[in-house]
């Protein structure tokens, strides 16, 4: 049996008296697409922050493949292949989309420290960045500054940046947040089309999308994992109905 792509073990975190992660256990097998759902404030984003090292957990362990990455700095975790996107766009407003993705490619290829050669000398890196942009249909706008892109395009650029780092595990924090429904379907189609070498955990509020794209669903409430199971199991789970689905208005 191959090791899971990502394992989280006994993860805890509180902000003062507010417990945002309570003994979290999580396993993501290679090549799978799992969904993380839960009401607002459940601690989903915080969990991603903890896994990627942007927040320091009070206790717990994070394994990427076989290796313990709990002590690594965020950028080293990315180098190992654990990559995230942001719920609220976190982009480079004055860089063009091409420059931003090229930046990420250069960092992955280890050429970012080079300051004596001009960027255009690294043709491969630039071409790779452009290919990523093309694959997400951002080719036409890649020379425009990021802040001038339409919102939906900025959401795609979020993903493009993550892809440029060469992820093994991708954590997508509401990739379609704020995107109109038609576009959101398109966006998830793009995500579904990603290579199976990449294991994905995505946060999403739209249940249709979740049931369509996830092989398993993890339900989080109040900093704890309530249940996890296949879409069918979750859809019929009494607890989920009561605690989560019952209270959700837009389902």
């Amino acid at each position: 049996m191959t090791a899971p792509a990502l394992t989280v073990h006994g993860l805890n975190k509180s902000f003062g008296s507010l417990v945002v992660a309570n003994d979290i256990e999580l396993v993501l097998p290679p090549g799978e697409r799992h969904a993380l759902i839960g009401p607002n404030g459940a601690g989903k984003t915080t969990l991603i922050n903890l896994m990627t090292g942007m927040l320091t957990p009070d206790s717990g362990q994070i394994l990427l493949g076989d290796s313990d990455i709990s002590r690594l700095s965020p950028d080293l975790r990315v180098k190992r292949g654990l990559v995230r996107t942001f719920q609220i766009n976190s982009l480079f407003p004055h860089l063009s989309a091409l420059e931003a993705v090229t930046l990420a490619v250069c960092e992955r290829r280890g050429i970012a420290p080079a300051w004596w050669r001009a960027l255009p000398a690294y043709r491969d890196a630039i071409e790779e960045a452009y290919a990523i942009l093309l694959s997400l249909r951002l080719g036409d706008v890649c020379t425009r500054p990021t802040r001038e892109l339409a919102y939906g395009q900025q959401r795609l650029l979020e993903i493009a940046l993550a892809l440029a780092t060469g992820p093994r595990v991708l954590l997508l924090d509401e990739p379609a947040a704020g995107v109109p429904r038609e576009e959101s379907a398109e966006l998830f189609a793009a995500i579904a089309g990603l290579s199976k070498d990449i294991s994905i955990l995505f946060i999403e509020h739209d249940m249709n999308v979740v049931f369509r794209f996830a092989s398993r669903i993890i339900v989080m409430v109040g900093g704890r994992i309530l249940v996890e199971g296949t879409p069918v199991q979750i859809a019929t789970d009494q607890q989920v109905r009561e605690v989560y689905l019952g209270k959700r208005h837009h389902v």
């Binding site: 942007m54 950028d75 942001f86 976190s90 982009l91 960092e107 780092t165």
Partner: peptide
């Protein structure tokens, strides 16, 4: 442009 994003792209 964005010091928070940099580590998240492995920089």
């Amino acid at each position: 442009e964005n010091p928070v994003r940099m580590p998240a792209i492995g920089a």
